[in-house]
């Protein structure tokens, strides 16, 4: 049973104020995106217009010159994020199953290594990784960047997936084996359906991270292969910024993780909120 503290007016008021403060940065972004020529200031950017959003989908506008069109960088982000999510999810569930079910000394150490890798500062190995990718002649390739991003996502994903599989009672699988099902069969037909919420946690977590990843593609990709995060970064030091166009770009680029999160939490419900995942 959970505690149900008394609902008070004061906490509600305090939280409302905090909520409004959290919204402030978005206000500028949204105002600038719908102004004709927005600036750093809130007011005086001309009337309401949708043209900046429309321009994104029609050639990208002059502000993207050199960085490829909006659609191209958006497509690259999608490739990287979806690719990483799919590979990570499939591979981590496969790996987590034996780690959960076939306990042995080796596997115990294996899990330690996994948890250890979870804390690895990826940024620290990017310079040698660049050198390594150049040597293997796989630099500036979206496919191999996905492989690298998958490797960075796997330790945490596997660790989470394992804790979800641990929660599936063995008896259910045993019944399936009695019916002549193989290990792979019981994984696919018994375990996986039971851990759909867990898989969603892994998938959303991986997608959100991969979608927003900046440093890895910044180092491993260039030119027309750049995802939206790198394109976005190129606006920071630019000489002549069209703030409205960049704000529209930023909004569209921010939507997929938000929408995905909302859809998936609605779908898998309460169990989603990290709890099972991180409390082991």
């Amino acid at each position: 049973m959970s505690s149900q503290p008394v609902v008070g007016k004061l906490p509600s008021a305090a939280m409302s104020v905090i909520g409004v403060i959290f919204l402030v940065p978005f206000v500028w972004l949204v105002v600038a995106a719908f102004q004709q020529h927005g600036s750093l200031e809130l007011a005086g950017g001309g009337g309401f217009t949708l043209s900046h959003f429309i321009n994104l989908f029609h050639g990208g506008g002059s502000f993207l010159e050199g960085g490829g069109s909006f659609l191209a960088s958006f497509g690259n982000s999608l490739y990287l994020a979806v690719g990483t999510t799919v590979l990570t999810t499939v591979i981590c569930v496969l790996a987590a199953y034996p780690l959960s079910r076939f306990g042995s000394r080796t596997q115990e150490y294996f899990v330690y290594v996994l948890v250890f890798l979870t804390g690895l500062p990826i940024i620290a190995i990017m310079i040698p990784t660049y050198d390594y990718f150049v040597t293997l002649d796989i630099i500036n390739s979206k496919f191999w960047t996905v492989c690298f991003m998958t490797a960075t996502a796997l330790p945490f994903a596997t660790w989470i997936a394992r804790s979800f599989i641990d929660a599936v009672p063995r008896e259910l699988e045993e019944a399936a084996w009695m019916d002549g099902m193989t290990r792979a069969g019981s994984l696919a037909h018994v375990v996986v359906p039971m851990i759909v919420p867990g898989i969603c946690v892994v998938a959303v977590f991986t997608f959100v991270n991969a979608w927003s990843d900046f440093f890895v593609p910044y180092i491993l990709l260039q030119g027309s292969n750049n995802p939206a995060s790198v394109t976005m970064y190129s606006f920071f030091g630019q000489y002549n910024i069209d703030y409205s166009a960049v704000a529209a770009f930023a909004i569209v680029y921010s939507l997929p993780p938000v929408v995905l999160y909302l859809v998936v939490t609605r779908w898998v419900g309460q169990g989603f909120a990290l709890r099972g995942a991180l409390k082991g």
């Binding site: 402030v24 206000v27 972004l29 750093l40 200031e41 920071f236 960049v246 930023a250």
Partner: peptide, 19 residues
């Protein structure tokens, strides 16, 4: 929100002439 967007919003907020 992607980290680079968060950086951009705060950069704009805190800049000289910002919100």
């Amino acid at each position: 929100v992607p980290e680079i967007i968060a950086a951009w919003m705060w950069f704009a907020m805190l800049s000289n002439g910002g919100t």
